[in-house]
Structure formats: C-alpha cells, structure tokens
C-alpha cells in the first residue's frame, strides 16, 4: 500500500516535473562513469544503426535540427545541450528516460547503449569525427509498377557534377508501401550497371479493401531526390475486413443483437404497454359512461 502510494507520488511528481522542463538531474555516482566501449569506427557505425532504428524518429537527423516538436523538445545530437553531457549522464538519460524520452533500459542492451554514446560523440567537436557522411548528391529517380507481373521497375540517374545526369549504378533503392500512418518498408534492391532495377512485389503484401497499393520508391540518404509515389495499383491482397462487433456479445449493435434478447425485450415491453393501453381504454370508457 505504502509502496503504491510512493509510486503514484513519484509518477505525479515526474509529470509535473516534465512539464516544467527543468534540469535533468543525474545521480553523482552515475555522472562519472566512463564509456567502456572503445571509440572506433566499428562501434560508431553500430551506434549509428541503433540510432537510426531507435532514436531518429524523435531526435531527427544529426545536424539538421529536425526533431519532433515535443515539449520539451528532443535535442539534436550535434547540439551543445547534448554534447555537454558527460558519458555517464548520457548513459543514465538513455537508460532511464524522462517524460517524452522513453527509457531504453529494457529494450537496448548495455553494450549497445554505450555504442550509441560512441555515435553521439562522433559529433562532439573535441572528438575526431570517424564517420564522415559525404555531402549528398543530386539524383533522379523514375519508377513504374507493372500490375500484371507485380513488379516495380526503377531507373536512377545521378548528377555528374557537370550539370548532366548519368545513370546511377549500385545504388540502394528502398521500396515501401504507403499506409495510413506512414510508409511500410517492404524491400530493397540495387541498381545494375544500367542504373536500372526490378523489384518483385511479395505475394503477401496487403493492400486496401480491393488490393490497391501505393508503392513508394526512394534512394538512400546519400542522394537528394524526391521520393516517387506511384499511383495506386492492384498489386496486393485485398485487406480482410473482420466485423469488429460480433454477434451475441455484451452491448452489441441492433444488427447483431441476440434474438432471444430482442424477443424478451420486445415481448415484455409490448405486453406492458398493451396492458397500459387497455387501462387507458378503460378510463376512456369511464368517461363515456359519465357522459350518458
């Protein structure tokens, strides 16, 4: 009981605390921890993968300051606010989370959390930058979908820096399906020497009620292009539409009402009101007798 109470108190306090965007206090013994994971290219790369999967959705691309507009906002990795943390502080914050920042204690292993810090430090001016992203190149992407063969045909070109576009070999092209709440990645192909690629849409892809899917084609971050969103094509399975309200359940809709229930209800109500009607008729008769 007492434990429960403290817990609610802590939660309540934390909610209030978060709203005020106060300083994030880290226990002293945690602050001083040093990163046991060596700062090398392999660890930074692993950290990057982890970042892309777990953090980018909120914190955005490092250096672009395009995180989600939360209150308080998730700081960019290159920001001073982020980098002024000690390794121990970063580790604590990632582990425990606070308010809009989830905890990763249970979802990311300790080693990997330290690797994430390796990656964050890649943007620290006092560290040598191990992972340098080349400046993105301009590219063009064309794609079409072949409904009969359930294939996506792709052609990519890249700016050769002299103002003309040449075919782009060996580039990773991501294929996704557009869904109500974002794009669902379904596969990746490499362009061949001709700058072309073909992607076979899996049989299991599910579309809308009639199997229509909008395929989205995009190049990786090293290229600047517009994503290609193709017209809806019938390349998926029709979406199954289970009836959400089943027959014979509590509070069911009128179309699904249990017949025994409906009959009892109508029977009882009908009988009661028939009797009431009969009584009212008697009153009417009393009135008629009185008039005679």
């Amino acid at each position: 009981m007492k434990k429960q109470f403290t817990l609610t108190l802590v939660i309540a306090l934390m909610t209030v605390y978060q709203g005020m965007a106060q300083e994030w206090l880290v226990p002293d013994d945690q602050k001083g921890l040093t990163n046991p994971s060596e700062y090398n290219l392999s660890n930074v790369k692993k950290g990057k993968d982890l970042y892309m999967k777990n953090c980018k959705s909120c914190h955005g691309d490092p250096g672009k300051h395009n995180g989600l507009p939360l209150v308080p906002p998730p700081p960019d990795m290159v920001s001073e606010q982020m980098q002024k943390n000690t390794d121990g502080e970063l580790f604590f914050k990632i582990t425990k989370g606070r308010g809009g920042m989830p905890q990763f204690e249970t979802t990311i292993s300790e080693d990997d959390r330290w690797r994430l810090i390796n990656f964050i430090r890649n943007f620290d001016p006092s560290h040598e930058q191990l992972l340098v992203d080349a400046p993105p190149q301009k590219a063009k992407l064309l794609a079409s979908v072949n409904e009969v063969e359930k294939k996506v045909e792709i052609f990519a070109e890249v700016d050769d820096k002299n103002g003309s576009f040449v075919k782009l070999p060996n580039a990773a092209v991501k294929i996704s399906a557009k869904k109500a709440f974002g794009n669902l990645p379904i596969g990746e192909v490499l362009t061949n020497a001709e700058g072309r690629a073909e992607y076979q849409i899996p049989e299991t892809l599910i579309g809308d009620e009639s199997g229509m899917v909008n395929i989205v084609v995009q190049l990786d971050e090293n290229y600047v292009t517009d994503n290609v969103v193709l017209d809806a094509a019938k390349v998926g399975q029709p979406k199954p539409q289970p009836r959400l309200i089943k027959k014979e359940i509590l509070w069911s809709t009128n179309e699904n009402v249990q017949s025994w229930l409906l009959l009892s209800y109508l029977g009882a109500v009908g009988a009661a009101w028939a009797a009431i009607g009969y009584v009212v008729f008697q009153i009417f008769k009393i009135w008629r007798v009185g008039k005679e």
């Binding site: 359940i249 509590l250 509070w251 069911s252 809709t253 009128n254 009402v257 209800y265």
Partner: peptide, 12 residues
Amino acid sequence: GRFASPIIWDVT
C-alpha cells in the same frame, strides 16, 4: 438505442 444494452432496458 441498442436493444442489447441494459441502459435501454432501464430507460424503458
């Protein structure tokens, strides 16, 4: 009203 809902029975 839903006939399967006790609230309707009550209103009735």
